[in-house]
Design a protein around this nucleic acid. Structure first.
Lengths: 217, 217
DNA sequence: CGGCGTCTACCTACACGTATGTAGGCGCTG
DNA sequence: CAGCGCCTACATACGTGTAGGTAGACGCCG
C-alpha cells in the first residue's frame, strides 16, 4: 500500500518510472503480450526487482491503468458538468478529451486495448474505471434526449460511436500512416464535434423528416 | 495453400472448422492471448493435429484473417464503386459493412484487434489486408473533396473516425452492456450514415459559415 | 562516536508451469 | 497396402514468481 511512513528517496522515483514504462508496454501489447522483462529493461533494473514494488503482473497492470484513468476522469467529468446547452457540453468534452489524449497517445491505446481485450485483468479494469465514464456519457445523452435536444437513438450506441471515432485516430495513426501529417488536435475536435452535433440535430425529434426521406430513397 | 489436389472428405471439413474456431479465439484474445489448445478443444481434436493442417500458429492466424477479409473486401469495394453521388456511396458502404458485421461480430473484433495489436503477426495482417481497405476509403474521401462535395478535412482522419465509430459498438457492446437491447443493424446504419453526411454537409466548402460561427461562440 | 542491528532496494539463481512445435505410431479407407 | 488424418509422447523454450543474498543508509545505544 502507498501508506508507507518513510519511503526511501530513490524508491519512490523508481516506482514512478516503472509505472511509466508499464503504461507504454501495456498500451502496446496488452496484458498477455506485455513482458515483465521489457518493462524492467526500460526502467534499467532487473526483472525480479519489479516484484519488490508490485506483488505481481496484474498489480502493476492495475497501477498503470489507475494513473491513466485518474488523469482522464476529472477532465471528462468536469466537461460533462450540467451546463444548460448539451451541445456546449458535447463541444467541451470533445475538445478536452482530445487535448489530453493528444499529448499522451498511450492513453487512447490503453482505453482501446482494455475495451478489446477479454482477459480477466482487462475486464476488471473496464468494470472499475471505464464503465463509470461510459455511464456518464450515456446519462448525458439520455438527459439531452429527455429535453428533446438529442435524437431518440440508442444512447449507448451513440456513446460508443463517439468514443470509437475519437479513439481510432490515435490508435491506428502511427501504424497505418507513419508519415501522415500530424493533424492538430484542435482540428480533430472541431470535426468530431461538428459531426456529432449535426448528426444529432438532423435526427432530433422535432426535425426527423430529412432522415425519413433519405431512407425512402 | 488451399490448392490441395484431392483433400480427404473429412479433412477439408476439419480445416474449415479449425478456421472458424480460430476466428472466434483470435478475435477474443489476439495472437499472443489465443491458445492453440483452446482452438483444438473447440474443434474437438488434439492440439498437435492443428499442426497437420497449419504449419504453425501464425499460418493459422493468417488463414483465419484471410477468410474474414475475403468476405468484407468485395462488399466494401462494391459499395464504394463510382456512382456519382458520394453521399449515396457513403450510405451504401455504411449499410453494407454494418450488415456483414452484424451477422458476424467476430469480424469487427478481428479488425479492431489487428489495428490495436503491435505484434508482428498482426502488423503483417494490417499491411496486407486492412491497409488496402483504408486506402480505398481515403481515396473515396479525397475524390469527394476534389469534387467539392466533402469537407476539406484530413481524409485519413475522417476514414479512421468512421471506422472507429462503426466498429466500436460491436467491440464493446457485449462487454459493457450485456443486457443492452439489440439495436437493429438497419438503425445503426441509419444513424452512422446520417452522422457522417451531416458532418460533411456542415463542413462542406460551399457552406462553411455554420462551423465558423460555432467555433466563434 | 563507533560498532550493531535493521530496513530498503536491488541483485543472482532457480523452481515451476505452460505453450509451441516435432517424432513417430496407428487405424481406416480407397 | 499406401497414405491420409489424427493420435500419444516428448523436446524445447519462455515467462512468471520465489528464495535467498548483499550493499548501503539510518537510527540507536553504550
Amino acid at each position: 500500500m502507498p501508506s508507507r511512513t518513510r519511503p526511501g528517496p530513490a524508491a519512490d522515483d523508481t516506482r514512478e518510472r516503472i509505472i511509466d514504462a508499464a503504461q507504454a508496454i501495456f498500451a502496446r501489447d496488452g496484458f498477455v503480450g506485455a513482458k515483465m522483462q521489457e518493462i524492467a529493461d526500460r526502467v534499467g533494473i532487473q526483472r525480479p526487482s519489479l516484484f519488490y514494488h508490485f506483488r505481481n503482473k496484474e498489480a502493476l497492470f492495475v497501477a498503470a491503468h489507475e494513473q491513466v484513468f485518474a488523469k482522464i476522469e476529472p477532465v471528462f467529468r468536469e466537461s460533462l458538468a450540467p451546463n444548460g446547452d448539451p451541445f456546449v457540453q458535447l463541444d467541451r468534452v470533445s475538445r478536452a478529451v482530445l487535448a489530453v489524449v493528444a499529448e499522451e497517445p498511450d492513453f487512447a491505446r490503453m482505453v482501446a486495448r482494455t475495451s478489446v481485450d477479454r482477459h480477466p485483468a482487462a475486464v476488471k479494469i473496464v468494470r472499475t474505471y471505464l464503465q463509470p465514464l461510459i455511464d456518464l456519457s450515456v446519462d448525458f445523452v439520455c438527459e439531452g434526449q429527455r429535453r428533446g435536444v438529442f435524437a431518440d437513438i440508442d444512447p449507448f450506441f451513440f456513446t460508443l460511436n463517439s468514443w470509437g471515432a475519437a479513439l481510432m485516430y490515435f490508435i491506428a495513426r502511427d501504424l497505418l500512416a507513419p508519415v501522415a501529417k500530424p493533424t492538430h488536435p484542435r482540428d480533430l475536435a472541431r470535426f468530431t464535434t461538428t459531426l456529432l452535433q449535426m448528426g444529432h440535430r438532423a435526427l432530433a425529434p422535432n426535425d426527423r423528416r430529412a432522415v425519413v426521406s433519405q431512407r425512402a430513397s
